[in-house]
Design a protein around this nucleic acid. Structure first.
Lengths: 125, 125
DNA sequence: ATTCTAATGCAACAATGTTGCAAAAGTAAT
DNA sequence: ATTACTTTTGCAACATTGTTGCATTAGAAT
């Protein structure tokens, strides 16, 4: 059977994402790592961290994919919270406590949600 | 001053998007046009249609950019409606009547929202 | 230390989007 | 209809993002 291994790349990337208070993109991670490992390795590590449930993936309003640590969802792994994307400082943050409500027409079965608001964050306001 | 022109490409692309009841991606549009114009031209026409306010842009949960006609927003141009992305038939539709509610922490200024639910649409349920 | 195989690096590729520039084609005026 | 003006297009080239195959490296268990 398949056993995961702890490698320098994985440890470092995981640390970066979980420690950060904003979601990070692949290129931002790459810059931070500063040549520690290959571009491709970053993609593969992110894939593994997603599978493990250590991080989650956010597609920003501009289509840029970002990754953030899973904090509140350690027990039940759900991501039904809002993300906020600041148009000025470009930071994407998880508003873990905000759950939106809505009323769908009949016969839709929802299994996932992706809700991102953009505007100005408290720091930039 | 700059005056827009009606060209075959623009007319055709606009027609495609506005007529369609699902949002279309660049590649889907390209396939439909079947060589009517260059790939780059499609990008540029889409840009113009967005500026004009004829269409709006949706970033799907998988990061794929799609375009849909503006129907309900002819008067006040707002896109505060939910989009639904079917995991089976891959159709992305605008649920124009559904406006979500949520309660943000203090000091956030929202100027745009992007809300996409995914799951199964009525046709695929 | 040995063995097994997960993880990495590298090269190559695919998809998506952007830019510069010369040629083509709308539009308005004559 | 012809001319003049300038938007729009096509093409080539490029940038970015993400994926895949394969040989090599290096965790982890024995």
């Amino acid at each position: 059977m398949k056993t995961a291994r702890n490698t320098a790349a994985k440890t470092e990337i995981q640390d970066l994402i979980v420690t950060s208070n904003v979601a990070l993109s692949h290129s931002e991670i790459q810059k931070s790592l500063d040549g520690l490992c290959d571009r491709v390795t970053i993609y593969r590590v992110l894939e593994r961290l997603l599978e493990e449930g250590t991080i989650h993936k956010i597609v920003n309003v501009d289509g840029v994919v970002k990754y953030a640590g899973c904090h509140s969802c350690s027990k039940k792994h759900s991501h039904n919270h809002i993300h906020f994307s600041c148009q000025k400082c470009k930071a994407v943050t998880c508003l873990e406590d905000v759950e939106p409500s809505y009323k769908l027409p009949k016969n839709y079965k929802v299994s996932e949600m992706n809700f991102t608001l953009s505007g100005l964050c408290p720091q930039c306001l």
